[in-house]
Design a protein around this nucleic acid. Structure first.
Length: 557
RNA sequence: GCUCCUAUAGUGUAGUCCGGUUAAGCAUUUUGGCUUCUCAAGCCAAAGACUCGGGUUCAAAUCCCGAUGGGAGCACCA
């Protein structure tokens, strides 16, 4: 073993390492560390005296099996194994609130939960967490469903938390009657002051009968803010969430599906606890900011003697320079700094789609982040790298010219040319008509001098007879050699489009005024025949998504 | 302020629970080379990390204590 290690590390080994290796493989020696340490020391020093060649010879003669290359450690695919997970019995869920457009953060929660259900052949529930009538809207509900569908996430059940309103009431009464919840009629400021000071309020001391009476009053008489149902937690707890949190409160807004049917609504903690329990959720993964609620949810379920799911947590996901929160995005829209929630600079699913990001890439990307609780502020190019792998094999290659300069070629022997749509995959060819009048990229013309030869890609060699703002040249028979290769567009059929290049919205915490670059460029007429939404690679420029007949959005390099 | 979470290459992570079998694996990035009628993709190679300080141990990325950096919660939002 010493020999092998020495050989692998340039003819020198160390006794510490060898000792570790031996103890690692043969735990029975662990009691006799001192003795074998001495032996190892001797062996190691004798091995180290040998030259690399001598070591190799020794191995060849006596231990040839050591030369077999070590097999690579098999990398775990996908998410880490779950504790207490039984194949076929795992139920997970994704509970978004229909109060905004879905973004990459939603994608993470949905993907992690659904992947686990898939991994264990279990079930996956989509549950609209709609217990705040003031915030929910059908528009968002629909957008979330569209977003998930686009991501390719399938669910076995779709429901809304508000489907179970009667249950919340039933359980609330149960908690009131068992003295585990009470009705608090204190002012909001006092409640939060008492929380901070870890003091109980007088309502906490009221008897069950009074609580029941107040519960009745909550149905109609009390106004919003007059009374809440509080869980009897522990006002002295370090975890502030446990300091008698709200279970139900009065909200009179019109709910987007139930209208004005109910006026008492459960809080998040109460709703999630009960829902996960009755839905049979075995493993519930949420982002880290909910970590403190784990204890509360457990306590509520214990108080009701209901089954508890395993709760797991993962870090929030954000891209550098791309705000995720409505609080930041909304003003940008109002000020006209971004157009809408589908603006390609945003991390919403709709924006990502428009930008040309593929759902498979998002899935792979999120899986690659794992279940870490360390905050992830990923640079966008991490996603791009995944996307490129999906997009490259299927993107048609087209020529595109920006900062166009004219090139006139004499003696062109052909009137059209066929160019293949992809360098390696068979995606057919397209025919381009040529008449000697071309646009070529402005950047390329700077290096072109009179008398030199260039190659127009897929067309032929040109001898330049005049350089400058407008170039002229002459066609020359010949194979492509080591001369500058340049893409081109035929002037006669050139199609002008607007190229939108999204960049980081924020640099540091300052809005980037140059976050959207627009370029007027020429491309081939074939562009017009592509479908909206097709991914294209403009040669040497990068991957772009066709947004419309007249506009393309730059996806990434 | 109090409470909680977190810390591995430029970046994102695996490994940490159960200390040794890995002088820290993968991806991305960067750089070189091969290939190519794209500066794309593909292939090959190289570069590069355990936040710091103590402690426990024959042995610490891994366990313990402390410090520091980052994040979250302290709502009748979810």
């Amino acid at each position: 073993m010493a020999l092998q290690n020495a050989f692998e590390h340039g003819g020198e080994t160390r006794d510490k390492i060898i000792l570790g290796k031996i103890l690692g493989t043969k735990p029975e020696f662990r009691t006799k560390v001192k003795e074998i340490a001495e032996d190892i020391s001797k062996i190691v020093s004798s091995v180290n005296q040998l030259s690399l060649e001598e070591q190799k010879k020794e191995i060849d003669e006596n231990f040839p099996e050591l030369l077999i290359p070590k097999e690579k450690i098999i990398e775990r695919e996908g998410l880490p194994e779950l504790k207490d997970a039984i194949q076929g019995k795992v139920i997970t869920r994704f509970p978004p609130e229909p109060n905004g457009y879905p973004h990459i953060g939603h994608a993470k929660a949905a993907i992690i939960n659904s992947e686990y259900a898939k991994m264990y052949g279990g079930k996956f529930i989509l549950r609209m967490d709609d217990t705040n009538p003031e915030a929910e809207r059908m528009e968002y509900h629909a957008a979330i469903k569209v977003g998930l569908e686009w991501l390719g996430i399938e669910f076995d059940t779709v429901k809304s938390t508000s489907d179970d309103m009667e249950l919340f009431y039933e359980k609330a009464i149960e908690l009131i009657n068992s003295g585990k919840a009470y009705i608090c009629t204190c002012k909001r400021e006092n409640i939060s002051k008492n929380r901070r000071e870890r003091k109980e309020c007088k309502c906490s001391k009221g008897d069950i009968e009074k609580n029941n009476k107040n519960w009745e009053k909550m149905q109609a008489k009390f106004k919003p803010g007059d009374a809440i149902v509080r869980f009897r937690g522990d006002m002295k707890a370090d975890n502030a969430v446990m300091r008698d949190p709200v279970l139900l409160r009065i909200i009179e807004g019109k709910h987007y599906t139930l209208g004005e049917k109910y006026r008492i609504w459960p809080s998040y903690d109460f709703a999630v606890a009960l829902e996960d329990s009755i839905d049979g959720v075995t493993h519930a993964f949420r982002s880290k900011e909910f970590e403190l609620r784990e204890e509360l949810i457990g306590a509520i379920l214990d108080a009701l003697d209901m089954r508890k799911p395993y709760q797991g947590f993962f870090s929030r996901l954000e891209f550098k320079g791309m705000p995720i929160s409505k609080r930041i995005i909304r003003p940008l829209i109002e000020e006209g700094k971004v157009t809408w929630y589908d603006d390609p600079r945003l991390p919403t699913l709709e924006a990502l789609r428009r930008r040309g990001i593929k759902p498979e890439a998002i899935r792979k990307f999120i899986m690659s982040l794992g279940l870490t609780k360390a905050n992830t502020l990923a640079p966008f190019d991490a996603l791009e790298a995944f996307n490129r792998k999906f997009v490259d094999p299927t993107s048609i290659r087209l020529f595109m010219v920006s900062n166009a300069k004219k090139l006139t070629v004499r003696n062109l022997p052909m009137t059209s040319v066929e160019i293949s749509n992809h360098p390696v995959n068979d995606m057919g060819k397209r025919k381009i008509e040529v008449d000697g009048n071309f646009f070529i990229p402005g950047e390329d013309t700077q290096d072109i001098k009179e008398g030199m030869q260039i190659r127009l890609l897929g067309l032929g060699n040109i001898s330049i007879t005049k350089s400058g703002i407008e170039l002229e040249g002459e066609f020359i028979e010949g194979e492509p050699t080591n001369i500058p290769k340049i893409q081109w567009v035929s002037q006669k059929t050139a199609h002008q489009i607007k190229m939108i290049i999204p960049k980081a919205l924020f640099i540091g915490d300052k809005f980037n005024e140059n976050s959207l670059e627009e370029l007027d460029v020429y491309t081939e007429p074939h562009y017009l025949q592509l479908k909206e939404g097709d991914e294209i690679q403009f040669v040497r420029f990068g991957y772009c998504r066709k947004d419309s007949q007249n506009q393309a959005i730059f996806t990434h390099k």
